[in-house]
Computed example of a mutant assay.
Amino acid sequence: MDMVLRAVAIYLILLIVFKIAGRRTLLQMTSFDLILLLIISEATQQALLGEDFSVTGAMLTIITLVAVDIIFGFIKKKIPGAENIIDGSPVILVDHGIAHESKLQKVSVSCDDILLAARQNHGILELKEIKYAILERNGQISIIPEAEK
């Protein structure tokens, strides 16, 4: 019975905290959001399975982490350039069919990754058919095809 009550308590506090924090889609998740979810899951696991009955501690940890996430979101909206510092900025990897090798190495993306995105989204088979390939903040690669001639 104790485990059931713990599970209900953790579920309810997570539900309330995430309703207050707002929604984010998985595709728009930043690195901080992923880290936040991993830490929340660990705190939740400890509260659910731990021997120390630290439900309150887990709740405070979760609330603190979400509050930090909200504060970072506020900072990104209010301070120019903060979003680029916190989340990074988009990176142009291919410009008119030419791959920028130094940028590819810096962000650990291969030409195969770019071509995969190009095939999946546009049916493009060759790099020369890509006008721009952009690594977005969320980790996805946006492809802008060259205009048809």
Rank of each mutant, 00 (worst) to 15 (best):
R6Y: 03
A7Q: 09
I10C: 04
V17C: 10
V17A: 11
F18R: 08
K19S: 11
I20W: 09
A21I: 12
A21P: 07
G22W: 04
G22F: 06
R23E: 06
L38S: 05
L38E: 04
S41N: 11
S41V: 04
A43D: 00
T44L: 11
Q46T: 14
L48H: 01
L49R: 06
S54R: 12
V55S: 03
V55L: 14
V55Y: 07
T56C: 05
T56K: 12
T56M: 08
A58V: 07
M59G: 11
I62A: 00
L65N: 02
V66D: 00
F72P: 00
G73D: 06
K76C: 14
K77I: 06
K78G: 09
I79K: 15
I79T: 12
N84Q: 09
N84K: 12
N84W: 00
I86H: 02
G88T: 04
P90T: 01
V91G: 00
L93W: 03
H100L: 12
H100S: 13
H100Y: 08
E101Q: 14
S102M: 06
K103S: 13
K103T: 05
K106T: 11
K106V: 07
V107E: 15
S108R: 15
S110N: 14
C111A: 12
C111L: 11
D112L: 09
D113I: 07
I114F: 03
I114P: 02
L115Q: 15
L115R: 07
A117I: 00
A117E: 05
A117K: 11
A118P: 03
A118S: 15
N121F: 00
G123S: 06
G123R: 05
E126F: 05
L127V: 09
I134L: 14
E136D: 13
N138A: 10
G139D: 12
Q140A: 13
I141V: 13
I143T: 00
I144A: 02
P145F: 10
P145Y: 04
P145E: 01
E148S: 12
